[in-house]
Simulated scan of single mutants.
Amino acid sequence: MTRRTFRDIHGILLLDKPLGLSSNQALQTARRLVGAAKGGHTGSLDPLATGLLPLCFGEATKLAGWLLGSRKAYEAEVRLGMTTTTADLEGEVVETRPVPVLDDATIEAALAPLRGLIVQIPPAYSAIKQDGVPLYVRARRGEVVDVPAREVDVYRLEVIGREGDTVRLLVECGSGTYVRSLAVDFGAHLGCGAHLTGLRRLWVEPFMAPPMVTLDELRDAAEIGPDQLEAFVMPVDAGLTHIPRVELDPEQTRIFGFGQPVPLGQGAEPGRCAVWGVDGRLMALGEIADDGLLRVLRGLNLPTA
């Protein structure tokens, strides 16, 4: 058996996570296949969920936390008439109720309160930590879990298909939104209960039309060689295309390279930006203050081309 060599690979791979694997299992499998010495992912998907899981390798891992707040879209399959302990297929059935005859107007009335800036109670079986312990660990111990409500943004929520007691929903939302909780609240508004039976993440900002790759495709590429695998890895700056680009002159590059703030002037647009040095190298994720002062949020140590 050939021993795999790990290398300093810097970039982002858009994985189509398969059913049944945790996000970390999917990450470690892809990392070993690619041969990346260091890797991380930007936000977990449950084992029962599939779809886009951006993986960061090398210096791109420094951006993983900043990508977590991105807008996301899902296709969700919801089964009406039954609630479960976990709000999805993994849990035990808590209650079953008959599903009433539903028309489009009734369904829309149940969905309408779930759009916009809403207050949501995450599932007890979730990875949210209290005192350092994930809630799902406490729930599995049989402890009574008090889940704090949170504000989340649901930008889009609409029916894209329906068959019997199963409804397919398109969900576009902000960070921290639990689609399982949306399913539960949808069923509660209809008066029959519901749980999530399928979930696929379609995109994550800034990857709005993602060229996803499967683990099987990575395995096939691994048989050919490293160059074939690295073709799937996008450059680090692919994760920053949704924010402004700032290019520094030689003196600004020198100052910024020491981690010192650089004055850009009052005309600079405040907010996060991708900072490029005079040598054409991505230096950092930066932030411009209201006074035009550019500071480092996350410095990058990428090799020169």
Rank of each mutant, 00 (worst) to 15 (best):
V275R: 00
I118G: 01
L199N: 07
E143T: 08
A64I: 10
A284M: 02
Q252N: 08
T84L: 00
T253L: 13
Q25W: 05
I128E: 07
A274P: 01
G69F: 00
A222N: 07
T241W: 05
P18D: 11
G280I: 08
F186V: 01
A124H: 07
G161P: 03
G265R: 07
S22L: 10
G11W: 05
R298P: 10
A221S: 12
F6I: 06
F186K: 02
P270I: 02
A188T: 15
T253E: 13
V34Y: 05
R281G: 15
R281D: 10
V99H: 10
G271I: 06
L111Y: 01
R254V: 14
L33D: 11
L196D: 07
I128A: 14
V246I: 15
L117C: 10
T5M: 05
G225M: 14
F207S: 03
Q266T: 14
V275L: 06
I288S: 08
N301R: 15
C192R: 01
V152D: 01
Q120G: 10
R115G: 07
V204M: 15
A274K: 02
L297Y: 06
P123Y: 01
D131M: 07
G259R: 14
V137M: 13
F6L: 15
E108Q: 06
K129T: 07
A194T: 05
Y125I: 00
L13K: 06
P148Y: 02
L135I: 09
R219Y: 08
A183Y: 00
P54Y: 06
V233C: 03
P244H: 11
L282E: 08
T197D: 07
N301F: 15
G116L: 02
S22H: 04
A183E: 03
D104G: 11
I255M: 15
D103C: 09
R32M: 08
S23H: 04
A231T: 14
L21W: 11
E223S: 13
D249W: 11
E77K: 07
G35Q: 10
G132C: 12
A221D: 02
T304L: 15
K38G: 12
A60N: 13
L102I: 02
H10R: 08
T84S: 02
Q120W: 01
V236Y: 12
V154R: 09
W66S: 12
E223K: 15
D237F: 00
L248G: 02
L63A: 01
R162L: 03
L67D: 05
L202D: 02
L33G: 01
D104P: 06
V296D: 13
W276Q: 10
T50Y: 08
G280P: 05
L135V: 05
G292F: 10
D249F: 11
Q28I: 12
